[in-house]
Design a binder for these strands. Structure first.
Length: 372
DNA sequence: AATACGGGGAG
DNA sequence: CTCCCAGTATT
């Protein structure tokens, strides 16, 4: 026993694994090493907390138990299961990648580093995570936790926001991976970062590797890791139209589908237009709806404002409720699809909301709108 | 090497 | 408020 270059009685990996064996959390994706389950969990966990992912993972696997089920499912169903989780391209990429696995690898997640890295949505971290956790291939998986743990353990002042820092940590890690348990090593490192080597006030008193942690020895564990801070999200001011009317005795509201590319791609939302930070042009919003959807709108009233912050955009939303006369039956010749509307526009009732995937902020706006 | 891409939880 | 989270794709 004993590490190659450790003066401690037990190596870094041995102490880490012993701690992991005692303290690891009981998580849904740890019930087995099903590569598909590991894969789904790793995609969901990108930039997303464990507690947030748990219910999504359970529902997703219940709805799509196998790669085959996910590959065959309508994309709208997949997006619906992702609703509220964010970074929706993850869901689209996952389904595209699963279809690729069906087509090119006979439905078996590849255990080859080069092959798995070509799959959509699978980057350096996820490739290493799937390979090590599902197949016990000794590849490092460097996420935010591992970056923090290792910069502290090795006293590295490298900026963890930079890509080359990840590469450096991967190279430090590779010779440390125990060949008998690469998967546990990967998870133990992340678990340590998540539970012990936390960003603020790290719990060095209960850390299994504190004795030879260079940052701890130098007393600078709170100064690491170094990370350049992100820019402020830019402000955007938007006027939102909550348009409602009665159809067949049922209250409906207007939804439109966002473009296939960009922010919240392919999700449904209330129509809205951008305006400057000082004034909201209600007539312009009304005209927009009239011009785009051929819907003449009558009365309007102000609803409560909403704020929504993305990583890079801060939305200030002013919401107006519009009413469409019961007498109106939109059938403008230039429009096609349901109710004489364009294909990307629908009258939807609360009952039918389950068929549409909406960004959370618009779910809130609609809840507010229909409650009055 | 930067930026786009969601949403939430902790302090 | 700020930070940052089991990151990846695109530019």
């Amino acid at each position: 026993m004993g590490g190659q270059n450790e003066s401690m009685s037990d190596s870094f990996a041995e102490r880490l694994l012993a701690w992991f064996g005692e303290r690891k959390r009981d998580l849904p994706w740890r019930k087995n090493k099903n590569p598909y389950h590991v894969w789904v969990s790793e995609i969901m966990l990108q930039q997303t907390r464990v507690e947030t992912v748990i219910p999504y993972f359970e529902r997703f696997i219940a709805r799509f138990p196998t790669i085959h089920d996910l590959a065959e499912a309508p994309e709208a169903d997949v997006l619906k299961m992702w609703e509220g989780l964010g970074y929706y391209s993850r869901a689209r990429n996952l389904q595209a990648a699963v279809r690729e696995v069906q087509a090119s690898y006979g439905g078996v997640v590849p255990s080859d580093a080069v092959q798995i890295a070509t799959l959509k949505g699978v980057g350096p971290y996820t490739a290493g995570a799937i390979l090590s956790i599902a197949y016990d291939v000794p590849e490092p998986a460097v996420d935010g936790n591992v970056l923090r743990v290792m910069t502290r353990y090795k006293l590295l002042y490298d900026d963890i926001a930079k890509a080359k820092t990840r590469v450096r940590i991967e190279n430090i890690l590779r010779p440390l991976i125990p060949l008998q348990a690469p998967g546990d090593f990967t998870q133990a490192l992340m678990e340590l970062g998540s539970l012990v080597c936390v960003p603020k006030n790290p719990k060095c008193d209960i850390c299994p590797v504190a004795a030879d942690c260079e940052a701890k020895l130098a007393g600078v564990q709170s100064e690491l890791p170094v990370k350049t801070k992100a820019k402020q999200p830019r402000a955007e001011f938007r006027a939102v139209a909550f348009v409602q009317r009665m159809i067949g005795g049922e209250r409906k509201f207007l939804l439109r589908r966002r473009p296939e590319q960009g922010l919240l791609a392919g999700l449904w939302e209330c129509p809205h237009i951008e305006h400057d930070d000082t004034q909201t042009d209600i007539p312009l919003l009304s005209e927009h709806c009239a011009a785009e959807y051929g819907i003449p709108m009558q009365r309007s009233e102000r609803m409560p404002d909403f704020e929504h912050v993305f990583s890079h955009i801060h939305w200030h939303l002013r919401v107006y409720r519009f009413h469409v006369d019961d007498e109106f039956h939109g059938n403008d010749a230039k429009h096609v699809g349901v109710d004489g509307l364009p294909e990307h526009v629908r009258w939807v009732s609360v009952r039918e909301l389950g068929d549409y995937t909406l960004p959370l902020v618009f779910s809130k706006i609609i809840r507010q709108g229909v409650s009055v």
